[in-house]
Simulated scan of single mutants.
Amino acid sequence: MKKVIVTGSSGFIGKALTKKLYELNYEVIKLNSKTGDISDFSTFSKFDFTDINHIYHLAGKTFVPDSWENPLEFYKINAEGTLNILELCRKYKIELTYISAYVYGHQDFMPISEDVVVRPNNPYAHSKYIAEQLCEFYAYEYGVKVSVIRPFNVFGVGQNEKFLIPHIIKQALLEDNIKVKDLTPKRDYIYIDDLIDAIILTKHSKNNYNVYNIGSGYSISVKEIIDVVQEILDISKPINCENSFRINEISDVVANISRANLELNWFPQYSFIDGIREILKYEKEKYNGEV
């Protein structure tokens, strides 16, 4: 049986990845906050890495607003934690797939390719980009085979309610109106199942160092998200917008996914509407009589 490690296995993406790997008959060692702090190398002393052939590294701090309040924790976990994972890969000759983030910041042209100048615009993105630079160094200087996934805005069943789409859906199902901070920002959304497929396909990457955008190739505004949710639910609740703006807010984001198309033979299978329908089916069952 193929044996792999998933760090961050208890997170939104980690749970979905672990489930899919089990379905594909992998033996999965799960590392998460309960097993220890990845920024402390001694955490790994309890594990045997001799027969591991791949690590999927997702563990990290993820919520952008929190990164402004506590940047030190983000750099410690996201950068130093990734360095520790790379050291394991170097020592035991393990291949790595690193799940990064949208690190591009403000860009003048869309869609955004992997080759543009990266301009992280918040501590979270900057900490992830530092981790990418470590991955690149270990790939070229130590021969560790690394694939970096840059997901754009991931959504799907089981995502934390502090993120935009589950926040909107909960209000659409349970509240009298829908409250958001800003209706205008547009993002490229990718459904969780499509992201998981791309992550698993990186095992077949040919180069020693690979970077892939994973998105849909089109963007949707906050207002359009609300419209899609209300249309599927056949409702028309009032929308209250605070007209407040996040620090360094980006107005629009679209991914160029041609490299993943070409090198991984990966293409999104879910449209945005398909993904919202899947979430709504699950959420309506969860809330049951409350809806």
Rank of each mutant, 00 (worst) to 15 (best):
L262P: 00
R277I: 10
N53E: 15
G11E: 05
S258L: 09
D197H: 04
F245E: 09
Y212R: 13
N70A: 11
I149C: 11
T82Q: 06
K93A: 10
I52K: 07
T202I: 12
C135H: 03
N265M: 12
R119K: 15
L134S: 06
H54S: 03
D115H: 04
E69W: 00
I38T: 06
F109Y: 10
K179W: 04
W266V: 02
S216Q: 15
G81N: 07
K19F: 13
G217N: 09
V103M: 00
G215Y: 05
N25L: 05
V146Y: 05
E285C: 00
N160I: 08
P151C: 07
F137E: 01
G36Q: 12
N177K: 13
V253L: 10
Y102N: 14
I232N: 03
K145D: 04
E27C: 05
Y92Q: 00
G215V: 03
K203E: 15
G275K: 06
R277K: 15
L96M: 14
E224H: 08
K237I: 09
L173K: 04
N70K: 14
L173G: 03
K145Y: 02
Y75A: 01
V254M: 05
D234V: 02
G36A: 14
I112A: 01
V154A: 05
R90D: 01
L88P: 07
I29T: 06
C89P: 01
K206M: 11
I192T: 02
H106D: 10
